[in-house]
Structures are given as C-alpha cells and as structure tokens.
C-alpha cells in the first residue's frame, strides 16, 4: 500500500543464520546494538533486549553488546542529521517504553527510514512506522499522565519527594516540566521500580541518578505540616464531587487505579507501604 522500498532480503531460506545483537534496555544500549548491527554488513540482523526472548532459535546467532556511549552518540547524531530532530525525538521516546520488543521496532524503523529519508514519518499506513508511533504515543501518554497524577510530599528537611511506579521510564520526560515549575524548591522524583531518580536543587539544573537501597529508605519522616495538607486536600477532593452525578466508572477511566498507589486522597485502599 505504500511506495517505500523494502530492501530486506526476500530470501527466506533458513540456512542463513541471522545475527541478533543483544543489549541492555537503556536508550544508549539500544543505540549501541543498532550501531553494531549496522556494522555487521549483512541484511540478516536484528536488535533485541537481553532477556526479552526466552525461546532461542537455532537459526539465530546471539551477540551481546556492551553499552558504548560513543557509538550511541554516533547513532543519535546520524538520526538527527540524516533524518530529523523530530524523528530522533520519536525514537528517543520509544526507547523509554516498557515494550520488550522496542529495540527491534526501532531498528526496523531506522532501516526503513535511512533508505527513504525523513518523509518516512508521513507513511502512516506503513507497519514499521505505525509501530514506532504507537510506542511513542504510549510513552507520551504515560508521561503526560504522570505530570497530572504524581504527588510530592514534604520531608522533614523541606525537600519535596515524589514516588512513582511507571511502566515506561518516564522520569527523563517529566523532569523538565517540574524543574521549571518547582524551580525554587528542592525535590526528588523516584521511580520505585527502577530505583532511578531525578534530583533537583533549588535554582539549579536537575540530574539523574540510580539510588541504592539505603538511599531509598530516606523517603520517610514527613514534615510536621505534611499530614495536615494531605488532610486538607482529601477534604477538598471529597467535597468537590456532585453527589447527583456520582460516576465511579468514569472516574476510574479518567484516573486509572494503577496511578493512585501514591495518591493519598484518591487511593481507594489504605496507603501502601
């Protein structure tokens, strides 16, 4: 249905072994593996995230790659220059997805994109393009939902702490928003599943870091005022509903339960530890 060339080998004979480059799931890891797969020189390559495929195929040759920031940077630059900043952004966001096949999707998209040029993003009926956009949208949606539903709690030392447990790695996407908004505050956003955090000191640029188990325990001991404001919010949250229009299923659609784990007033169950 589309005019784009598909150069991938139509030769389906199984006696040619496919080289699968395995990477960790980070953006840099995926880019490194993509670089290696390209350098491979054959058409029969793919990129996958280590541990994402549990059945090994006899006709596939698995090659582990070690994340190399220089190679990743090269991939990033060639996407930006030969395709576009826009496309780079789609890919970057797709790479933050929780989808175990994301590396492979990105690789297929890039193979096609480099053959056809930046106008590839208009080929909305193409499968590889569609898949990439789906990933991108999914991550974008989750990131946006986190702008809405994350909650900060004030610790004893005045630091605002926020815990999240997203499916995709949204921290890199939401940090800029909060560093502008809460510019004058010290804060930290912690992804409890990944033990990954964004840290912001008042009036300065945020940075990302991995947290040790010990550091994770620092998220207790709230300030004196904290409980009070939580109660005030709960009061407001409960009074604002119009009882003649109560509609829990609509509420659940708009604000899915999985986001409410760290929301005090909105959490239907007693607070989770």
């Amino acid at each position: 249905m589309n005019n784009f060339h598909d150069n991938s080998s139509s030769d389906n004979s199984t006696n040619i072994i496919k080289n699968i480059y395995l990477c960790d799931g980070t953006t840099e890891g995926i880019f490194t593996a993509i670089y290696r797969a390209w350098a491979d020189g054959t058409n029969r390559t793919d990129v996958r995230i280590k541990g994402s495929c549990d059945t090994l195929s006899f006709f596939e040759n698995y090659i582990e790659t070690k994340t190399d920031y220089n190679l990743a940077e090269k991939v990033c630059q060639s996407i930006k220059h030969k395709l576009s900043e826009n496309i780079y952004f789609y890919i970057y966001r797709a790479s933050l997805s929780f989808n175990p096949d994301r590396a492979s999707y990105i690789y297929s998209f890039l193979q096609k994109a480099f053959r056809n040029g930046p106008s590839i993003i208009n080929a909305l009926s193409d499968n590889d393009v569609m898949k990439l956009f789906e990933l991108d949208r999914q991550v974008g949606r989750e990131a946006h939902t986190h702008l809405e539903f994350v909650r900060f709690e004030e610790l004893e030392n005045g630091v605002l702490a926020c815990r999240i447990n997203p499916k995709s790695n949204v921290i890199p996407l939401i940090t800029e928003h909060f560093s502008d908004r809460l510019h004058t505050e010290n804060w930290i956003i912690l992804d409890t599943g990944r033990s990954f955090a964004a840290v912001h000191r008042a009036h300065s640029a945020p940075f990302f870091c991995a947290l040790s188990d010990e550091q994770l325990t620092a998220f207790s001991g709230f300030s004196e005022k904290e409980e009070n404001f939580k109660k005030l919010w709960k009061t407001f949250f409960e009074t604002i509903a119009i009882k003649e229009r109560v509609n829990p299923s609509l509420q659940r659609t708009m604000m899915p339960l999985r986001y409410r784990k760290y929301m005090n007033a909105e959490c239907p169950n007693p607070r989770l530890p």
Partner: peptide, 26 residues
C-alpha cells in the same frame, strides 16, 4: 515559564490533577 522568583508555570494544554467521584476533572 517560571518567573524565577517563586513557584509555578503554566501549560497551554492545561493539566488535570485528579478526577472527583463524579468523574469531573480537578
């Protein structure tokens, strides 16, 4: 954007922060 002196900015799209029991955006 933030004014540099205090907290706050504003997004053209608007952001909902919660949904009350009647399903309306807060």
């Amino acid at each position: 954007h933030n004014n540099g002196a205090g907290i706050g900015n504003s997004k053209a799209c608007g952001i909902c922060h919660s949904f009350s029991a009647d399903g309306r955006c807060i």
